[in-house]
Amino acid sequence: MATRERKAPKTWSLLGDVKRRPSVYEVTASQFAYHFRREPAPFEMSPDAPINEWYLTHREGSVFNVDDWEGYRDPAKLTYSDYVMLQHDRETYLDGLIDHHESASSVESLSPEWVSTLTNAVVPLRFPLHIMQMTALYVAQMAPTAFIINASNFQAADEMRRVQRLAYLTKWLANAHGESIASTDAARAAWEKGEAWQPMRKALEELLGVYDWGEAFAALDLVIKPAIDSLLGDSLAALAAENDDELLALLLAEFHRDAERSKDWTAELVRYAVANNPALAEVLSTWVAAWTPAADALVSSYATLLPGADTAAVVTAAAKARADLLAASGL
């Protein structure tokens, strides 16, 4: 038969005549977003159907574009399988961490003052973290290549991971220090009406309304998320350690590993984009500048929920986190 007479191919035909055999990471993502710049429209329906126009406007039509996105690689090079294997190990570690602190009754022995701080500053966090999950999934569904889609999807899953461990901690706190700590109404009221939360809520709700995929990426991954990750990974973690809450400090340190992975793929995406289209440096800088006041506002406002923390230090840490990321991105 004809099929048996052909020379064995080295890789997918669409990858062309490659010199190096592509990795598993590459062959299970390359050119999967076949609908990007497809003619006459991304999807197999009327070219002017509303969803085609949505993608043509917010993805193909975004100023954040280069000739070829398929050359981008997430530095972590995670396939789905790699991701679940990695997080299976990390979750096993967290299970062990919680076992240890349950045996030691760590949460039960926290001071009333610190429990109050946790109630005010940690328990409602599941709301903003969930919005960051949502936004990462928007960036993913709009991204022009599977190499970005996958990285952003895994980031969204990491946000869910963080929400769920904090939910566990919330219930544990409630069992030890009063059921009201786990009240949905109380957490929602803090999120919707608590003064200190409003700059964060405003920034994240406005972020939900950003539909240009490039701006959504820049606002979330270069500005808003690094600010919130700094609040948790730098300032809250340090305060937890000062208040003898080793469990929370270590939980936050673990989440910080996920945040670092986000920064790595973000910085690499910026470098890749600018290398391929130098005009994007200014585009990205403009978006960063536009979202920075919102980030600064949410940081200084959230700092008021952390009694004993030096507000200036909280602000400085967040500013440094952003500056470091921008520097790593080459902006």
Binding site: R126, H130, Y168, T184, A187, R188, R201, E205, E206, G209
Partner: peptide, 12 residues
């Protein structure tokens, strides 16, 4: 507590 993050929007 992992799935009660429903809230009323105010800013959009």
């Amino acid at each position: 507590l992992t799935r009660d993050m429903n809230w009323d929007l105010s800013y959009i």
